[in-house]
Design a protein around this nucleic acid. Sequence first.
DNA 1: ACCAGTTGATTGGTAATACCAGTTCGGGGC
DNA 2: GCCCCGAACTGGTATTACCAATCAACTGGT
Lengths: 281, 281
Amino acid sequence: MAREKSEKKRGRKSREERKSAADAAADRLRRRILEGELPAGSMLPGERELSEQLGVSRLTLRSALASLQAQGLIEKVHGAGNRVLDYRETGGVELVAHLARLAVEGGTMPLRLLGELLEFRRLIAVELLGLVAERATPEELRALREHRQAQAELVDDPEGFMKADLDFARLLVRAGHNLTLELLYNTVQRLVTATPGIEAAFAVNSRATLQTYDQLLDLIESRDPDRVRRLARTVMEPLDRRTLDRLAEAASLFAGGEGGAKTEIEPATKAAAPGSPKGEN
Amino acid sequence: MAREKSEKKRGRKSREERKSAADAAADRLRRRILEGELPAGSMLPGERELSEQLGVSRLTLRSALASLQAQGLIEKVHGAGNRVLDYRETGGVELVAHLARLAVEGGTMPLRLLGELLEFRRLIAVELLGLVAERATPEELRALREHRQAQAELVDDPEGFMKADLDFARLLVRAGHNLTLELLYNTVQRLVTATPGIEAAFAVNSRATLQTYDQLLDLIESRDPDRVRRLARTVMEPLDRRTLDRLAEAASLFAGGEGGAKTEIEPATKAAAPGSPKGEN
DNA sequence: ACCAGTTGATTGGTAATACCAGTTCGGGGC
DNA sequence: GCCCCGAACTGGTATTACCAATCAACTGGT
């Protein structure tokens, strides 16, 4: 009875995160910082005391702090202490992952953030498509076409479709021949794959997505960067809008209907224009 | 005479002793990975052995490994070992800082990377300017104008000019009203401020830069996003080209003229894939 | 000879402790 | 009064020990 057979042959993702103690501690601290409980500029307790508060050893706590430092959330000053920074000024892009999670899990973060995230992704995609139109080799274009065909077989398999979608995006980003952009995509992809249940957001528009891809590929083959950027922008916007709507639904599920006022999904239809009623187009 | 610097038994590399032992170890490992000495897919030595190789405690080594893991360079598998990943597939944006440093310091990285980095920055800026043209409030525009005026006083102060330039960029990114973009800017700024001697690259074109800013601000106030994006692109390109030339010169200084640091400004027209650092060495 | 299950050595993960190294700040000497 | 210096914080590193997960070799059975 040493160990049960387990589902080795299933080989599916072991969904539940076995967060290490260090990661768990980092998550808790990060949450307290992002939610404002630990205000920017303040000094957090000494490592010895803080480690006891969190119920971990100082070593583990230090590992967590190192993680927060790498993300630009705190500043470590030898001999003085650990200072909380303003993540809007020093936080790295990787933070969007945690911010998005806080937003979706019915927390204190505004849903507007998700709209901005999609917008960001769209901006990057537009520029990337411009590069691809300029530089993609015939082989790369062919590979994109082929992958697009293969992806069509997965319109009803959320998980598979998402994976294929990410692969398609990687082919694109490779065809852009810009390493920095490629690394940025890695960061974004990590965000996506680390968000459980996000397959739905991909699968909803699976057919519309494929259709859009066809349009984009046609555009690229025109080899006219300006035209590609301009049209890609208009083509992708409605797609993102639908995705955002879907994400808003998922968020309302998390919230469970408690305090319905929290669902500010309304602005979604008019794009995320903070304060400025101009927005949209 | 105050206190004396405790400059005692230091002998090896007193130049950059600021770095903590953990950071130093991380740097060395990262370098070995990025240069291909530790090929992707390989398992690096056990922590106990590796820590001895690097002359640090296992604890410090683990801190370094955690850093590399956060950057997507290695994968830690409990019980198995630490696997080296392909940074092109999993590395985060923050890596461009280290890649750029390796490129400039006459190392093994191609200078083309710097061109791609500037290109990336330009792509982001173009999209950002589009957002600003849509959403910036009159107050934000006025603040930008004012800052532009103040920056003009610093054309002959490299360090001050760079700082003002970064501040200007932050004002812009704020006016874009997209948090993700703002976080991305934080990452880029960290790269810039962490690169010593980079002020020169900013100062070279100080006057041309200000002139360009005037054009961009005029464009923004036209409130025509498409026009802004299109023209901003053409306006910024020559500026980046000059900057790249300057960086190439600096690189040739480092390399001592051996690295063939010629000005390959051409942003990778066809560009074979970046030298695949496979089993080399 | 083969397969299944167990075991054991190796790996990373965490803990506890002690000590080193900067920073801060207040008391004692000038 | 001022300055200096050192004690008491702070974080940084090392050492040691043990827990947990993995994998390979060994074992016993078929």
